[in-house]
Design a protein around this nucleic acid. Sequence first.
RNA 1: GCCGCCAUCGUCUAGGGGACUAGGACGCCGCCCUCUCACGGCGGAAACCGGGGUUCGAAUCCCCGUGGCGGUACCA
Length: 446
Amino acid sequence: MRVRFAPSPTGALHIGGARTALYNWLLAQQAPENRLVLRIEDTDRERSTPENVEQILDALGWLDLNWDEGPIFQSDRADRHREVLAQLLENGHAYRSTATAEDVKAYKQQHGSDRGFRGTPEDTGAVRLRVPDTGATVVGDVIRGDTAFEHVHLDDPVIARADGSVLYNFAVAVDDLDAGITDVVRGEDHLSNSPKQLLVFEALGVEPPRYAHLPLLHGPDGKKLSKRHGAASVQELRDAGYLPEALRNYIALLGWGYDDETTLLSTEQMIEGFRLERVSRNPAVFDEQKLRWMNGRYLRELPLDELTRRLEQFTGRSGIEGAVSIAQDKMQTLADFEPLCAFIFDGPADDAAAFDKVIGEDGGAENLAAARAALAATEPFDHEHVETALRGVVEERGVKPRQVFQPLRVALAGSTVSPGIFETVALLGRDETLRRVDEALAKTTA
RNA sequence: GCCGCCAUCGUCUAGGGGACUAGGACGCCGCCCUCUCACGGCGGAAACCGGGGUUCGAAUCCCCGUGGCGGUACCA
C-alpha cells in the first residue's frame, strides 16, 4: 500500500488536513511494506517550501518521521505533465477549445441540465478532457461505497490552460500514477472532483487508486471550519499550548472511534486499531473544550522534567521546575502556566479588588500578621512544617482555614487564585514570603 | 439551478435486524474531597430528523420528504 500526504500549500496546516495526514500516516505504519509519499499540491513553488512542511510536521510532533519519498512538488513536474497532455491530445482523449465558462453555461441553458458540455476541437484554447457521452464513472470509496456520476451530467473538464500549464485535477492524477499511489485518502470536498481524475486514469488506460473521502470538519456553527472559528491550524493550536500527543489523540477521534469506550489512546494503539473502513461518514464539529480536557490529561501524565522542558521552551523562562511541580495539576494547556505562576517570579499581581476583599476584610490583616509570626519561626522551612505552622495559626485563632490562607495567598500572589498555599510558601522561601507579607501588611496601614 | 455526500444526547462517537431500558467521552447539573482555582470520586439530566414501506421484529435495510454540507473555475 502506498498512500500520500498532501499538506496545505500555505504551511498553515488546517486541522482537517492534519487529520488526513494523521490517517495516512497511521496506514503507512501498519505494515512494513506500506509507504507514505509526501506530495505538495501546488503550482507555486515559492509558497511550498520544505521549511513549511517541516513546520507542519513539527506541529504534529512528527519531526522524527522519515519520509519514504518526496516531497514531490507539482511545480517540478511540468515537463512530465506536458508529455502526458500531448499524448492525450494525440490519441483524441483530449482536445483544444476556446469555450469559456459562459459558453458552457449557455450550452447547458440550451440543452438542458441532462447534457454535459461537449466542445468541438479547435486549434487553440484550453485543453479539455473528452467525457464519454454515455455510461457513468463510478468512484469506489472505501468509506462510502460506490458513487456513480452519470456522464451526461459531466462537462468536459479543462485539464490545461491555453498556455499549456496543467490544472490540479489532471496533475494530481498523473502524479499519483507515477508515484504508484494505491490509496488516496483525502477530504470529502474532493469527492465531486474524483470522476475527473478517474477519467484521466481511464484515458491513460491505467488502473486508478482506491479512494477514501473523509468527512469534513465544521466549526461550532456547523459551517466549514475556518479562521473565524478561532484556531483552525495545528500551529495555532500549538501556540495555544496544546501538546502534540494530545492533538494527535483528539484529531484521530474526529471521525473515528477505537471502540465503544476508549477515549485516551496512544499512538501505538491508533496504529494497531485504525481501520479506514470504519471511519465515519458524517462531518464532525471541532470542539476545543474536549481538546482542553484531553490536553490536561496528557499534561498531568508528563514527567516533571519533561513538562518543565516544554514549559521553558513555551514561556522562555528558565529555572521553573519548582513552580511547574506545584502547578502541574492545575493546568490544562501550557499557556495556563503564566497566569498561574508568573507571580512566583515577577512578584504579586496588582489586584486591588482581591486585596480589599480578602486582606481588607474583618480580621484579614490580623490573621495575616499571625501567619507571618508563625512562618518567621518555622524551621525547617518546607512544605510539611509550613503546613503545620499555618494550621496551628488557624487553630490558635479559632477561625476557618480560609480566613488565614486566603489573606496569605493574596499577599504572596496578589490574586485569590494560586497553587496550593503550603507549596507556594515553601517554594518562595522564608525571606521572600516574609518580605511579601510585610509589603501587604504595610499597605493596610497606609 | 444542476450533480453528489451526509443525518444517534449540545459536541465527538459505539451501534452494522433481536444482546437497546440505545453504551462511552467532553460539556452541563448535583453531591463528596478541599486553603483558592483546579485535579479526583460518586450520581443525574440529555439522542436514534419526519413519513412510508420490508420483516415475527428496524437506530440498523429500501423509498420519499426535510435539513446540513460539498462540488459545479483556463483555483488547489
